[in-house]
């Protein structure tokens, strides 16, 4: 079990391989569908629209060397303090059209979600030095416990699940399923299960 602390440098990322279980600590940002279209439509523009400059700076500070987590949490607000009640990963492949640009633009080192991603993201991981960390789908309470503090929220107008939550985590569990060397567990399992399928269809 590798223990890693964000932000991460390229050497550390390159030392990781598919199948490695990891416990991640530090500050990360949640972002799913609306967040990714928002990044592309607003924050990746040059210049950034004036209304978004502040959020843009904050997002860059977290994501540079940092982690983006595909998650739409259940949250609670008591005495002006937010806490995460349940925070498992959501399906990542929906962000496939955007993620490579997001990795490149912000210098993201870790993309966290479930189900894995496609060729474009795998190539970006290899080129820019990033990994895909597969969280345990549905393990919402377990993961919420690893969120020690909700530090801030941006774009709450997107709704609770779609907003950008800046969270501090300790020992967030996951498995590297796409590394920075062009390997993807998802492709391997797909190929092996395809062979099994062909056998079963013939039988």
């Amino acid at each position: 079990m590798r223990k890693l602390t964000l932000p991460l440098d390229e050497n550390t990322i390159r030392s990781l391989h598919v199948g490695d279980p990891v416990l991640l600590s530090g500050v990360m940002l949640t972002g799913r569908d609306t967040a990714h279209t928002y990044f592309l439509d607003e924050l990746l523009k040059d210049p950034i629209p004036e209304s978004e400059v502040e959020v843009g700076k904050a997002v860059r500070r977290i994501l540079h060397g940092g982690a983006i987590y595909h998650c739409g949490p259940v949250v609670k607000k008591e005495n002006e303090t937010w806490t995460f009640v349940a925070a498992g990963p959501t399906t990542s492949i929906r962000e496939e059209p955007y993620e490579a640009d997001v990795i490149k633009h912000f210098g993201v080192r870790v993309v966290i979600g479930k189900g894995g991603m496609g060729k474009k993201t795998l190539a970006a991981c290899q080129e820019h030095g990033a990994i895909y960390l597969h969280a345990i789908g549905g393990a919402a309470t377990l993961i919420a416990r690893s969120v020690t503090q909700v530090e801030s929220v941006y774009k709450l107008e997107f709704g609770v699940p779609e907003a950008l939550w800046r969270i501090r985590v300790e020992d967030f569990p996951g498995v590297v399923t796409m590394d920075s060397h062009g390997k993807s567990i998802h492709e391997d399992i797909r190929a092996a299960s395809q062979r099994a399928l062909e056998g079963l269809l013939a039988g």
Binding site: P73, V74, A139, R145
Partner: peptide, 16 residues
């Protein structure tokens, strides 16, 4: 582990 934590704390088994 998540299932027993959720039941104990009365929080959702999954966030979705």
């Amino acid at each position: 582990q998540n299932i027993s934590m959720a039941a104990e704390a009365s929080t959702p088994v999954c966030q979705d």
